[in-house]
């Protein structure tokens, strides 16, 4: 088990480093940070001065080492655009995104699991068809458009929820629905096929013969094994939600990390974009690592193999 954890951990670390170096290099080759700091029409000497002062004339790998060194000590540098430490910016915006991502995950689980389970219990019935067509339509609805439609419906026609912002819990209802709906098709399909697989296995036939029926059979016997792939996909989806609430936060004007990232891109604020991408990648890598470890703990075949 320890061997497995070490191997997976090393891989995760390597991925995070590669991706963050990739984005770092991309921005340094494609944009001129000195020019960004100095402003569009600054004189050339000033730009050169800044380039020397900040050390932008050194090789990219050296600059990256520097940046990573201080990032590991909790110093992500100074934002060019907001003129304050990136760490503070991230702290200010993180809460909204975390709350949003977790409630969206809740929405996904509440819709996808019951739908997937009932579809698997009666394959080819009307429930199954309903679940399948829900998945097909949910996949085809543009996420940002769903948000706008919900705003028109529940904030304007029936004024139940506020249009935008992140002040109260009411502000989170519609965004969580939108963000949660985006993962319903994947999780639903996986639940359905996973449970169908398990239900046709020998040990379930034995359990049936021993008198397990109905919800006891599903929850106590079948779901445990069907859960393995669901845990993985939920971790991936949560990772996407923490790093991918860009659209939802923009539609509902919420001050989360996704919107911060969009605005930093628009303002070529390289330190902020870089730090955010590093944080998103780290979160994703750690979440999938956690899911792998949970799976290895649940299923001995994985940790031995």
């Amino acid at each position: 088990m320890l061997n497995y954890i070490l191997r997976r951990g090393l891989m995760a670390l390597l991925v995070a480093l590669t991706v963050s170096f990739g984005t770092f290099a991309l921005f340094h080759f494609a944009t001129d940070p000195a020019q960004t700091i100095a402003g569009e029409d600054a004189p050339q000497e000033m730009v050169d001065d800044i380039r020397e002062q900040y050390g932008f004339d050194r090789p990219v790998s050296v600059q990256y080492g520097d940046w990573l060194g201080s990032a590991l000590q909790g110093d992500f540098g100074q934002s060019y655009f907001w003129k304050q430490p990136v760490v503070e910016l991230i702290k200010e915006h993180a809460k909204v995104t975390i709350v949003l991502a977790l409630s969206a995950l809740g929405v996904t689980i509440l819709i996808a699991l019951p739908l997937g389970i009932s579809a698997a219990l009666k394959p080819n019935s009307w429930v199954d068809r309903f679940a399948l067509s829900t998945a097909v339509s949910a996949q085809a609805i543009p996420n940002f458009w769903l948000g706008l439609m919900l705003i028109i419906l529940f904030s304007v026609t029936f004024p139940i929820f506020p249009v935008s912002g992140d002040a109260t819990w009411k502000h989170y209802v519609l965004p969580a629905l939108v963000l949660g709906a985006s993962s319903v098709p994947a999780v639903m399909r996986l639940t359905r096929t996973g449970l169908l697989d398990v239900l046709s296995s020998d040990y379930i036939r034995t359990a049936r013969a021993k008198g397990f029926v109905g919800y006891r059979l599903i929850l106590q016997q079948a779901m445990r094994n069907a859960l393995l792939p669901i845990v993985s996909v939920l971790a991936v989806q949560l990772g996407h939600k923490l790093g991918g609430s860009v659209v939802t936060e923009s539609v509902f004007s919420m001050n989360g990390l996704g919107r911060l990232a969009v605005e930093s891109i628009f303002n070529s604020d390289i330190p902020t974009v870089q730090s955010l991408i590093l944080i998103f990648v780290l979160t994703f890598v750690l979440l999938t690592l956690a899911a792998d470890l949970i799976n290895a703990w649940l299923d001995p075949r994985i940790r031995m193999g």
Binding site: M11, T18, A261, V273, V285
Partner: peptide
């Protein structure tokens, strides 16, 4: 390894950054 890296990047942000640059 390349796949693992690609999957770990928030793809929409990467696309936006690339288009902007």
């Amino acid at each position: 390894f390349l796949v693992t890296c690609q999957l770990a990047v928030p793809s929409l942000l990467l696309i936006m950054a690339l288009v902007f640059v």
